[in-house]
Design a protein around this nucleic acid. Structure first.
Length: 643
RNA sequence: GCCAGUGUAGCUCAGUUGGCCAGAGCAGCUGAUUUGUAAUCAGCUGGUCGGGGGUUCGAAUCCCUCCACUGGCUCCA
């Protein structure tokens, strides 16, 4: 048979030669490094015979697919260790993930806690050192069912029920055998750095009605050094956590008395938020939006009309009732119904469209207690919301304009790494969506085309992720520890205009139904600030930073001069503070550095005599003496350039 | 909501197998110091040991329960 290599070279081998032997024929080094081989686009074990002409690419630790194979095998190693300590436990699935692997296990009456993980790691290391081979075995469905039936393993039997006979394989290493399609690394010995990272409950098949299994997460490396580096990376990432930095910089806080998931913005955080709002307002006015303001509650009726009551009523904060009539009001969980009523307040003509109603609307949603997380998942938050009402023919264009706005925001804040996720209907099951088929097709087409025409990179398409009323485009970014969060969102909605019976008079003098686009470039201010903090480590750009300048007099003697400097800065709309404590200059500098205030102005005898200020830049150091005017101008320029 | 873990001053953390009025550093306050580019010195204040209940002669330490937080799962208009 002929084997084609990635460089186009073709070599001839005897039928049934394994990838390992082919690698050996090239070099011992390659044979040692190769974890698996991609044979005709399918990943094979190194030891699996190749029986026909094929193209081959060797996978090493440096390939994503190589890592996935390595981690998948590591999951088996972990399972072997667990089975040896807790005989009789049952395994569900153990896949590789973005960083490491997990295995879902039914431990029966056994309990594993985090303090047991060390023991488990030791056992894994011991088993790895035995350097057991991963052995692949093709098996008939009947035999497989018999094997797991005798073990009483309902999980593997459930897996088997979905598999076709003739396409079933077992993998064994050491004393552990698992139903598995593979592929695997040649043997356990190459797994060196082992760290089990967490224990969690996970519902069987991801369904909360099912039993909760124990999920153990881990990560492994081909050497200890890489594991150590990874652990250092994790430590570093923790330092970026917005919850930590937010506390240190006095941006926001939470209080048990106020309630969980209800952030309290402290003066510095509020300043930051106001700057972001100002930035967005300016951009939106340029883009033709008009601001509106609506109340924090709305009659139950409003949400019955919108359909949200039926869908989310039970999971919301429960209604507030008026004392006399008993009329029910809900805290608003979204702004769109209110905005629909503003649309309806006047007769609309096609000449009025698109109508873009914008509001920084604070909404309240009863998120499950286990979901709350810092500022990224809260129960009360402010959306930079807007609803665009337009003619069907305008949808794509409006959509593209919103994409521009989102990209402008990301660019202004130097968010370089993000993915755009197009969320469409489930391919088969259309029952959970409302609205006509025809409108869905139109809306999905508009989004896909708008994204294509904008040339977005990093686009993923997810079927079944659409909102119940329409498809959407979300912009996702990662936080400090790799979790993905949705920021900006754009959603097409044919449903609400229908439910609220919105109309406009067309050119033909007849009534037509407008289309609605929901959009929020930040998403929620809270979540956006959280991600922003983690991106810049709390070192905000000049136009955003709550305090731009700290004035540091060397001694009390220079306070009058310093106060004058403070005055002039404030008169120039520069956010400045004066450190009038009787501390040494080194201490004042240290405190200001830690507060991440970008500009320090140091004032001593020399500066007073020469009518200048000494400038020190946060994290950069002394920049020498300048006139106050020069400093003011350069700060203003820096602010202008970013906005 | 579910699984597991955590909860000691404003912050970061000590507190041996249950045993003297619960400790430290930082922050804060008072005083001294008047300072030249990342921590001046001294003194003082500050804690229902998350809340409640229980076991015990005795509980921050053990048990139950509720709350909050952390890591996941499910959910996310």
């Amino acid at each position: 048979m002929n084997v084609t290599f990635p460089d186009g070279a073709i070599k001839s081998f005897e039928e049934g030669t394994s990838s390992l032997d082919i690698a050996k024929s090239i070099s011992e080094g390659l044979a040692r490094k190769a974890i698996a081989a991609e044979v005709n686009d399918t990943v094979y074990d190194m030891t699996r015979p190749i029986n026909d002409d094929a193209t081959i690419k060797f996978l090493t630790w440096d390939d994503l697919k190589g890592k996935a194979t390595f981690w998948h095998s590591s999951a088996h190693l972990m399972a072997e260790a667990i089975e040896s300590i807790f005989p009789g436990v049952k395994f569900w699935v153990g896949p590789p993930i973005e960083r490491g692997f997990y295995y879902d296990i039914d431990l029966g009456d056994n309990v594993i806690t985090e303090s047991d993980l060390g023991k488990l790691e030791k056992k894994m290391q011991e088993l790895a050192r035995q350097n057991n081979l991963f052995i692949r075995k093709e098996i008939s469905k009947a035999e497989a069912i018999k094997y797991f039936g005798e073990k009483g393993d309902e999980y593997k039997l459930d897996l088997l029920a979905g598999l076709e006979d003739g396409n079933i394989t077992f993998y064994s290493q050491g004393n552990f055998t698992d139903l598995c399609r593979g592929p695997h690394i040649p043997s356990t010995g190459i797994i060196k750095g082992i760290k089990l990272t967490g224990i969690a409950g996970a519902y069987w098949k991801g369904d909360e009605k099912n039993k909760m299994l124990t999920r153990i997460y881990g990560i492994t490396f081909p050497n200890q050094k890489e594991l150590d580096e990874y652990l250092v990376f994790l430590e570093e990432a923790k330092k970026r956590d917005h919850r930590k930095i937010g506390k240190e910089l006095e941006l926001f806080t939470f209080s048990d008395k106020v309630g969980s998931g209800l952030p309290l913005w402290m003066p510095k955080g509020a300043m930051l938020r106001q700057r972001l709002q100002e930035f967005m307002q300016k951009a939106q006015i340029e883009a033709g939006y008009v601001p509106v303001i609506t109340p924090h509650i709305g009659s139950k009726n409003l949400y019955v009309t919108s359909g949200h009551y039926e869908k989310y009523g039970k999971d919301s904060f429960q209604p507030i009732k008026t004392p006399v009539e008993g009329e029910e009001f809900f805290l608003k969980p979204m702004n769109c119904p209110h905005h629909c009523e503003i649309y309806k307040a006047l007769p609309r003509s096609y000449k009025d469209l698109p109508l873009r109603l914008a509001e920084f609307g604070t909404v309240y949603r009863y998120e499950q207690s286990g979901e709350l997380h810092g500022l990224t998942r809260v129960r009360g938050f402010t959306q930079d919301d807007a609803h665009l009402f337009c003619m069907p023919s305008q949808v794509k264009d409006e959509f593209k304009k919103v994409i521009d706005l989102v990209l402008y925001v990301f660019k202004s804040l130097e968010f370089k790494e993000f993915t755009a996720q197009i969320s469409l209907r489930d391919k088969e099951d259309h029952s959970k969506y409302i609205g006509s088929d025809e409108n869905w097709v139109l809306a999905e087409k508009a989004i896909v085309e708008a994204v294509e025409e904008k040339g977005l990179s990093n686009v993923v398409v997810e079927y079944g992720e659409a909102a119940f009323y329409g498809p959407k485009l979300d912009f996702m970014v990662q936080d400090a520890i790799g979790r993905k969060w949705q920021l900006g969102t754009i959603q097409v909605d044919y449903n609400l205009p229908e439910r609220f019976e919105l109309t406009y008079i067309g050119e033909d003098n007849a009534k037509h139904r407008p289309v609605m686009i929901h959009r929020a470039p930040f998403g929620s201010l809270e979540r956006f600030v959280a991600v922003l903090i983690e991106h810049c480590l709390g070192k905000f750009p000049m136009w955003l930073v709550p305090v731009q300048v700290k004035i540091l007099p060397i001694s009390d003697k220079f306070l009058p001069y310093a106060e004058n400097v403070l005055h002039q800065l404030k008169n120039n709309d520069i956010r400045a503070e004066l450190d009038d404590r009787s501390e040494k200059i080194g201490k004042k500098i240290r405190d200001t550095e830690l507060a991440k205030i970008p500009i320090m102005l140091i004032i001593g005898e020399k500066e007073v005599n020469e009518n200048v200020v000494s400038v020190r830049r946060q994290a950069k150091g002394d920049e020498g003496a300048k006139t106050l005017n020069d400093v003011i101008q350069s700060i203003k320029e820096e602010v202008e350039n970013k906005m």
